[in-house]
Computed example of a mutant assay.
Amino acid sequence: MNVKTDMKIYSSKEVAERLKLQPVTVRKYSQMLEEQGYSFTKDDKGWRLYSEDDITSLQYLSNMRAAGKTLHESVDYVATLYRSNLSLSQSAISLQESNPMMEFMKAQQEFNQKILERLEASEKRQMERDQNLLKAIRETQEVKKLILSKKKRWWEFWK
C-alpha cells in the first residue's frame, strides 16, 4: 500500500508510547487484527504505519482487555467492526452501551450466574440427601444387629 502524505502516520513505538503499552504488545495486537482481516498501511520495508483510526482501534482493543474481555474476543470485535466499515472514532463508551452484542453478553452472564446458583443449591440438596440416606442405612443396620442379638438360636429354645 502506498502511504498517503496528507494524514499523520505513526510507528509502532510511537503508538506504544501514546497508548502506554509495550511496543511488542502493539505489534502482537496488530498481527492478530491482520489475521482477522484488518489492514494496516505499510511502508516500503513492510513495516506497519498507524493512522489515527488504527490507534483508536488499538486503544479500543486495549480498553476491552482492561474491562476483562479475552484477547481473542477483543480482536474479533474490533476486526468485525473494521470489516463492517464501522468506525471506532465515536467514544468507546457509547459503542459499548449501545452494542447489542455487549447487551447479550451481559444477559448471558446474568443467566450463567443464575444457573450456577441453582446448580450449587442442587448440589447442596443432594449432599444433604446423601447424608440422610447414609444415616438411615446405619440406623437400619444397627436395628438388624440388635434384633439378631436378641433372637434365640435354635439350640437355645429349650433353655
Rank of each mutant, 00 (worst) to 15 (best):
I9T: 15
L61P: 03
V75Y: 03
W155D: 10
M7Q: 14
M127F: 04
V26D: 07
L33G: 10
R18K: 15
R18D: 11
D54F: 04
N112K: 12
K145C: 04
S62V: 00
M64Q: 13
K42L: 01
K20A: 13
S74L: 03
E117A: 09
T80M: 10
Q126V: 07
L71W: 01
R138P: 00
R118Y: 12
Y29L: 11
Y82F: 15
R65D: 03
K45Y: 07
L95T: 08
Q90I: 12
E139I: 09
K8G: 00
I147H: 05
H72E: 14
L58C: 03
K13Y: 10
E139L: 13
M127T: 14
Q90A: 13
N85T: 02
Y60L: 09
R129N: 13
M32C: 05
K28L: 15
L146R: 00
R118C: 09
W154Q: 06
R48S: 04
K114L: 12
E52G: 01
S98V: 02
R27S: 13
V78Y: 09
S30H: 03
Q131M: 12
L86H: 10
R83Q: 12
M102S: 03
A67H: 04
E156T: 02
S62H: 08
L58V: 04
M64V: 04
D54W: 02
Q22A: 15
L134S: 14
D6H: 11
K145V: 02
K69G: 01
D54Q: 06
E142G: 02
E142C: 05
Y77I: 08
M32N: 06
E110G: 01
D130C: 06
M105I: 08
E123N: 14
P100Y: 09
H72Y: 08
N112T: 07
M105K: 15
S87D: 05
R65W: 01
T70Y: 06
K159A: 05
D130W: 03
L148P: 00
K144E: 12
A136N: 08
Q108A: 13
T5R: 12
M102C: 01
Q31N: 14
F157M: 09
A121I: 02
R153G: 07
L88Q: 02
V143H: 01
R27A: 10
E35M: 11
I93F: 10
I137Q: 14
E128F: 07
I137E: 15
T80G: 13
M32I: 03
A66Y: 04
W155R: 09
D130T: 09
L19E: 08
